[in-house]
Design a protein around this nucleic acid. Sequence first.
RNA 1: GGAGGGAUGGCAGAGUGGUAAUGCAGCGGGUUGCUAACCCGUGUACCGGAAACGGUACCGGGGGUUCGAAUCCCCCUCCCUCCGCCA
Length: 429
Amino acid sequence: MHDVRLIRETPDAFDQGMARRGLEPAAERILELDRRRRAAQTALQEMLTRRNAVSKQVGAAKRNGEDAADLIAEVQSLKDGITANEASEKVLDRDLEAILEGLPNLPAADVPDGNTEDDNREVRTHGDKPDFDFAVREHFDIGEDLGYMDFGAAARLSGARFVVLRGALARLERALAAFMLDLHTQEHGFSEIVTPVLVRENALYGTGQLPKFAEDLYKTADDYWLIPTAEVTLTNLAADGILDEAELPQRMTAWTQCFRSEAGAAGKDTRGMLRQHQFSKVEMVCVTHPDQSDAELERMTGCAEEVLKRLGLHYRVVVLCTGDLGFGARKTYDIEVWLPGQGTYREISSCSNCGDFQARRMKARFRPRGEKGTRFVNTLNGSGLAVGRTMIAIIENYQNADGSITVPEVLRPYMGGLERIASKERTGQ
RNA sequence: GGAGGGAUGGCAGAGUGGUAAUGCAGCGGGUUGCUAACCCGUGUACCGGAAACGGUACCGGGGGUUCGAAUCCCCCUCCCUCCGCCA
């Protein structure tokens, strides 16, 4: 949500920001509504001032046993004007709100211009593509052949875009989540949180998924929504609150299931675990002082990268161009992991600084030291990491010629010491 | 599913028609050699104003009654307690 005062002060900068996202100028329309709304409000307030004063006189007159008929008549005569201005202020207010809540965040100055993901800019890479002296396969072939990845069973239960994992791969899911949570809580200063995955509408409004992107979400028959990411619940923990400046930054992490309808992705990534209606993810959220959020974005991205480094996976970091930026983000780094089976980099984490865009929607504020009043906090979120996609990366990068998978060293303590995932027959599992 | 109770500022908590007590915390200032203590100020949002300052709204949300509503009436949302069922 945008600050009207900011648009009032710098309408051109606002429109330029919208233009960088490929959107039509909106400032003029907004400011016209804003002018009319303020005029109605000012007129209304003057009438209310008069009404309050005269009403007071009525009270005084009645106490003294005097006749108040003239005064009462005067207030009566104000009524139509009050009703009319009240109504027009409310309508203008709603119109203005309706425009503002549909506009995305302004991109940060250092975000590159562009239209599609092809215009994203590579920032850095880590590691190298692994060499294989055999024909590499994709994760679903490996997983299915091992007998631990079952799309048929999932289809019978739930249809397309679901998976059933068994045995060592089921455990790998749990191991990955535990490893990531341990890293973020023990070394990166995040506190571990468990949240609901069913939420009310207002939580999704706060983070910006609603009202615009309802078609991407699942909703229950009794009006709960399934979260598409724990960003929703973790960030909304700050909603409607006023924090002490000393309580910032707040770093939180949670492992949750995520649910996405993938409405716009029909026919895309239909094979394998890459794009599912349900997947688990370890999410990081940070609530910061506005002056700190830029630095926090770098830090958070580093926390996500650390997971990949320790797993020994080759990746690159790209900064999203204006055209690829999400609705609430002012700047986003995507981390793309190398998938040898696909022979391409795929997104495994997305870390965004939302500035005060979400905070304004959910009224998340803090009290600045030595200053009057309150300010909106800044919010950031990042995957650390998407667990299913991490599993894909491990399967493809650690595959062996015999169809087994080597367990990365850091995960072995979480896998009961297991060094290699081989087929059922061979391990007897 | 049944029956009750409730929602007031950061927190606690009074207020049954005359325009939001009080306490605590935090912040700013003052007194004292320091600490403690004490004193003064300080709710949030918005509008007008160069500023000083002035004004309006807000007692869960939305309507209504009234000269005037936290207070009375109607609708809605949320929270809590007990009973039943249940992992």
